[in-house]
Computed example of a mutant assay.
Amino acid sequence: MKNLKIYWLIMLESIFLISCQKPEIQPEQFLPETNLNAKIVRAQRTTNNVSFDVPDQQILDENNAEVLFRNQISGWDNGFASVQSKKLKVTMPKNHHLSNTNSDPFDDGLRCRINVPERDGYELQFDVIFQSNFSFSGGGKVGFGFVVGKGVSGLDTTAIREMQGGSFRVVWDLQNGNHYLCPYVYYQDMVNENGRDFINHRFPLEARKRYTIRLRIESNTTGDNTDGYAKMEISTNYGNTFQTVWEKSDIRWSGNDDPFFRHIRQFYFQNFRGGRGTQYDGDRGDQSVYFDHVKWKPFRRR
């Protein structure tokens, strides 16, 4: 009996000692590995490739567009966009431009914003083709671009005056009887009021030709620093080689210290005839522009 009591005392002591020991940490439990995986997931969410490899269809509203772009969209103009032959087609009505007083002032094409994760730098790339016999007229906005802070569009420069943002878009422009693709930029220290400071940096434009446009942006680090960056490149051989159209490494996108007004949280998607006067009207019926291979990713130069 005494031996049995001693046996149980030894067993209870062993159980107590084992229960007090710290469990061994397995490799997959280490926090650095978990954090690394989380960072990878977050980085993937800022990278996107939009495919139009879907059946032909009308893009009727924001909900349809959000499914296509897999991102939240605001301001989609209904009735202008469709998917045709695995490309995004945007159609502009005949004799409609931004200031046509005989129609809704926005009844001239498509404009919206695409939400993306907030960053201080992005690279954005897309293909664009103007239809055969396109009536370029005086010019207009085309394709995708960057919203800096609150953004600037439609000649409303309130964000510039109040140091709350800027924008970097692409236009087609008429110069000396020829048409070109050019940067269209609103920023803190701009000289002109209409985004045309760098309009003479240009690339020849033709109908039916495929252009791959690549834009890069990086915000200035503080409201006072002129260390922001912008670059516009174009390729005519499916992105194999690019030609620099415009590059600037000392731009102040916003004069605000608050990152909310300096960073990029949205992209523009705009395609419409722009300008004041009937010289911007298209005169050959409805005109279409096609987009393909849209993609973006984080960009950091510094």
Rank of each mutant, 00 (worst) to 15 (best):
N3K: 15
W8C: 14
M11F: 13
M11A: 15
E13M: 14
S14T: 13
Q21S: 14
I25V: 14
P27F: 10
N35S: 15
N37H: 13
N37L: 12
V41C: 13
R42H: 12
D53W: 11
V54C: 09
D56S: 10
L60K: 10
L60W: 08
A65Q: 02
V67N: 14
Q72T: 14
G75F: 05
G75R: 03
G79Y: 04
A81N: 03
V83N: 05
V83P: 02
V83T: 09
K86D: 07
K87D: 04
N95T: 13
H96K: 14
H97W: 13
T101G: 10
S103N: 15
R111D: 07
C112A: 13
R113E: 08
I114K: 01
I114N: 00
Y122G: 01
E123P: 03
L124C: 03
V128Y: 00
N133K: 15
G140R: 00
K141T: 05
K141F: 07
G143E: 04
G145W: 00
V148N: 02
G149D: 02
L155G: 11
T158C: 08
A159C: 08
A159D: 04
Q164R: 07
V170Y: 00
N176Y: 11
N176C: 07
N194T: 12
N194I: 11
G195Q: 02
D197Y: 04
I199D: 04
N200K: 12
R202A: 05
E206P: 05
A207T: 09
K209M: 10
R210S: 06
R214P: 01
R214M: 08
L215H: 00
S219C: 08
N220S: 05
T221H: 07
T222E: 08
D224G: 12
G228T: 07
Y229C: 02
A230K: 04
A230S: 08
E233F: 00
I234Q: 00
S235N: 06
Y238G: 07
Y238W: 10
T241A: 04
T241C: 04
E247R: 02
K248F: 11
D250A: 09
D257R: 10
F260I: 12
F261P: 01
R262A: 01
F269T: 01
N271L: 07
N271V: 09
F272L: 10
F272Q: 03
R273E: 05
G274K: 01
G275K: 00
Y280S: 03
G285F: 08
Q287R: 06
S288K: 06
F291C: 03
F291K: 00
R301V: 11
